[in-house]
Every structure is written in structure tokens, then in C-alpha cells.
Amino acid sequence: MRTVRLTVYRFDPTSDERPRYASYEVPYRSGMTVLDSLLYVKEKLDHTLAIRYSCRMGICGSCGMTVNGLPRLACYTQVKEVGWRIKVEPLKNHPLVRDLVTDFTDFFRKYKSMRPWLIRTDAEEQENPTKQYTQSDAELERYIQFSYCISCGLCYAACPVVTALPEFPGPQALASLYRFLADTRDHGRRERLRIVDEAVGLWRCHFAGSCSQVCPKGVDPALAIQLLRREAMRG
């Protein structure tokens, strides 16, 4: 039977002096994902391995990790796709909790700071709507792509600016801001542009495109950020 050789980053800050890599041989079966192979390790070989996952089908965005050097969703990555020797590490740019589990506190704080909800000037109408908010297909297409984000943090891990500048909001937060800015139902344009027009804000994106390369949902944050930049230039 064909086996997969997993090299897994192991580090428990509460007991270990320094990180180490552990190797495991996992029997391959057709259709096996990287998450399947890690779960095999956890169930059969080493139950102390810490991983985070939930839906196993690329929807919840919990199992982001660095697989052979690139951020990927473990449940969305076929073993066959990445080879028979797989190196699995935690996501970069996120503080480490243990083994492959990272802390998303900063990530979600930045997301929230973008006010990712519809801002309306008619609060009363919003609370007690008297009619539907209608949109044309063309209006929907301006932002629908960016609303597929599952907040898995892969773009944030791939962004070279976040590595250098941890205060940078990151691709996910900026793209989510554009998602609402481009929505015809939103009234928060000025407020949103003020949030990102900072020295360590929107303008520090250099279109390295790594966010769009690794996004598992086709959100293309790099496109959203460039369009946001155009809007910010218009003022």
C-alpha cells in the first residue's frame, strides 16, 4: 500500500523549549485530503497532535495551515495534488497556539474594524423595513465575488506586507470593506474610506497578489483592494 510521509510542525509553548518536526507514515487511500491524513495521525499514531477543523468541506475555514510552503485549507487539498512527502506547518502571520493551531484574535479584530455590515443612514427603515432593497444583476456582481469569503485567514498568512507590518489590516479585512463599499445598499462610503486612508492602511498593499493565489474560494482580495484604492483616490 502506498504511504504518505507527513512532516508536521510540533510545538507546545506550555512545555516545549523549541519547535520540532515529527514524521509520520500514513497509508494512502483514494481521495485522501491533507486533513484526512492528519486525522489519521491523530486517531492512530499520535493523539497529542493539535489541529483545528470542523466542516471538512471547505466551508467553515477552520483548517488553514501551511502545506508544502503555501497556505491552504487542509480539507480542500488532495494529497495527490501536493505529493507523497508533505510538510505541514501552522499558518504564518498568525500567532501560534499549539502545533498547527493559530490564534485568529488579531485577524478578527481587524475584520471587525472594517465594520463588515451594511451602514444605513435610515436606521428606522432598516429596523422596520417598509419595502425590499432591490438590486440589479449588475449591482450584485460588483460585490458578490467578495462576499464568498469564509475568513479562513489564508490570504492573511500569504501577504508579505502583514509579515513585515503586523498592524496592516490584511487582504481579508480590506476586501471585506470593499465588499460593503461596492454594495448599493450601503451608506457608509465616507466612514469606510476614512478607516483605511492611513499610513498603515490601504496604501501599503503593493499588489503582490499572493492573497488571490491562495484564496480557496476565488474571492480575489487583490482585485478588491485595487478597486478600493481607486475609490479612495476618488475620495
Binding site: 503555501l70 498568525h94 500567532p95 501560534l96 490564534d103 508579505p160 509579515t163 513585515a164 503586523p166 503582490a208
Partner: peptide, 28 residues
């Protein structure tokens, strides 16, 4: 919950990320 913040930033990592774009697209 104890987390390791040092994983997030170190100068060798920053310079490697900035100067070695191996594995990424032409935009990088």
C-alpha cells in the same frame, strides 16, 4: 490561552518573505 507572538514577526522572516518569492506568482 498562551500564544507565541514571536512566530508572527522576526527580521530573518520579514526579509525572506520580502526577498524570496519562490512558490508564488509573477505578481509577487
Amino acid at each position: 490561552m498562551r500564544t507565541v507572538r514571536s512566530q508572527a514577526r522576526s527580521y530573518p522572516l520579514v526579509l525572506k518573505t520580502m526577498l524570496v518569492p519562490v512558490g508564488y506568482t509573477v505578481e509577487r
